[in-house]
Design a protein around this nucleic acid. Structure first.
Lengths: 314, 314
DNA sequence: ATAACAGTGACAAAAGCTGTCACCATCATA
DNA sequence: TATGATGGTGACAGCTTTTGTCACTGTTAT
């Protein structure tokens, strides 16, 4: 194997393993220790952040930085990736060890000149609108970590200016409309709750409470488990043409949209009793384009809310 | 310069230029043609997609694929990029020559094993919620192209089942809530309009109309120009604590939020007369948490809408 | 002290790289 | 059809780089 190829492979191997010794590499590549040492020095000069320690249990390490081996992207792919990263710029807080600026710079600077030109031209012409994240959410990284490890944390949670402490076991975190949320099992309420991450003011590991088994519960399938044993209503909503169009881009679990030939349609399905407030707002939003037929509780809630708002303007 | 380094530089040089001849490279690197030929063959073996043609005006070309020279990303950055791309998966249509699947696969497969492990663990625990794009929008790529080139197109635009044809000069495209929009100058209305891309059913170049000068108008600054000479209203809205909280993540241009000590607040600013319908829905959505003080037109519109909905349920 | 690790310098042998040259293939165009 | 610009191949001598060995130094946990 030529030296050039060996160096190439060495970069990848070194990325796979965090720690290694010169002797090990020498054996794997069938080369002498001296040669490997020379190779490693060359990699260092090429920018691979190697670090070594003498002594027993010493050896080489690759620092923080990882080298992505040359990836072949075509122009469209590179541009897509650029704009995907670009779309993250509205997030002040990300649950990863990195900041938007450093990522986008590295990526952009490593692209060839003509792709850069293309991107520059597109920058002012394409936009993925998303909500600005207004406030920092310091604990999302920890919440993500404990949800992966399935540990329990005691959080200080602010409701109406007061902080209550409770043990929760997070299922995961998600961003929606500029805010981060953390669905979790709450040991205080003995039930599943969704917490707003920016309201979590303190967080510490709870080593006394025994975790419940949520290992097969993820963000995507949490509804099935969480919603069992809860009171539900049968939903029936009539939609106009516009209403159908509007609902198309929404899609709730457990609710089915049926279209009629004339373009109108209706929704049938189940909603949780506890979600009544949510659906009240949701369907008011549709205005004349949605008419709730059942449950009567939802109809009443809508009527009441409308009256309350109207009263403001008397 | 050692061979390894020469090859490395050659990869980058070859990426910058689309076409080149052996002779040119030989001169630039100060090597013989023979050596360069051998180098190019080696690059080929390493996966660089080279293509050559004999004859006058022949030469080498790099095919479609571009090689990103080794970029050093640290673990956090690689993961961020992965999830940024991942967040695009809900888009059926993208204005780029690429599909989600191919990008994410290439990227994922090129990561080292332990980063892949980390990602696998995180996949079910982090989510950037976005709306599902339900329908294909075939023309976004062309619309983006003509907005970059500042050309004019005749589009067949569907409103209530009928298709009208009009010449428009697109400013750009943006995605919001699962739909693509195209703000443009409309030569039919002699004014700026926002078109929904999925309602554009045909598109063809209009070479007869003379483009107007929009070269300094981009997505980000279009409001200033487009909204001049339009009728506006003075807006004043009182917000409860909750209302303030809710508005924080919204932020409209030309509307200012002021907070009071007790947590309540108010909005002051300008809105376009033509946006009355929009703000009617918007503030109804706030329920009791927003009370519109002025303009009276908006108050009336809200009242009327509330009455209409209420009437449905009598 | 010992053993396990990294690191360096010198040198000769082995391997690889390079340029030259002769010659072929392809193809646009004069 | 001839010409010239381009890519492509093989052989070989000479040059350069790479490699292994060996002897030696430095660091550190045990």
């Amino acid at each position: 194997m030529s030296k050039a190829k060996r160096l190439n492979e060495m970069i990848m191997m070194v990325n796979r393993r965090k720690r290694f010794t010169v002797k090990e590499l020498a054996q794997e590549f069938g080369m002498s220790k001296r040669t490997i040492l020379r190779d490693l020095q060359e990699l260092s000069e090429m920018g691979v952040p190697l670090y070594s320690e003498s002594g027993p249990f010493g050896g080489y390490q690759v620092l923080n930085e990882r080298i992505l081996p040359p990836i072949a992207f075509n122009e469209g792919e590179a541009i897509s990736i650029f704009f995907a990263i670009h779309a993250l710029r509205h997030y002040i807080s990300l649950p990863f060890d990195s900041e938007y600026e450093s990522i986008i710079k590295k990526f952009y600077l490593n692209l060839s000149g003509d792709i850069r030109d293309t991107i520059d031209k597109m920058k002012n012409r394409v936009e993925f609108v998303s909500v600005y994240q207004q406030e920092e959410t310091p604990y999302i990284k920890q919440l993500l970590e404990v949800s992966i490890k399935q540990e329990i944390v005691i959080v200080g949670y602010e409701i109406n200016g007061e902080i209550t402490y409770r043990s929760i076991q997070p299922i995961g975190i998600y961003a929606n409309e500029g805010k981060w949320y953390c669905p979790s099992y709450c040991f205080l309420r003995k039930d599943y709750r969704v917490f707003r991450c920016d309201r979590i003011k303190t967080i510490e590991l709870d080593e006394n409470t025994v975790p419940i088994d949520l290992s097969t519960i993820y963000l995507t399938n949490r509804f099935s488990l969480i919603n069992r044993n809860k009171e539900t209503y049968q939903l029936h909503v009539e939609l106009t043409n516009k209403g159908v169009d509007k609902y198309k881009s929404t899609k709730w679990p457990n609710i089915e949209l049926s279209k009629r030939k004339d373009g109108t349609g209706f929704l049938k399905g189940m909603i949780l009793k506890s979600d009544t407030d949510f659906f009240t707002e949701f369907f008011i939003n549709y205005g004349e384009d949605a008419m709730v037929k059942s449950p009567s509780e939802l109809v009443d809630s809508i009527k009441e809310k409308l009256h309350t708002i109207l009263k403001q303007y008397l």
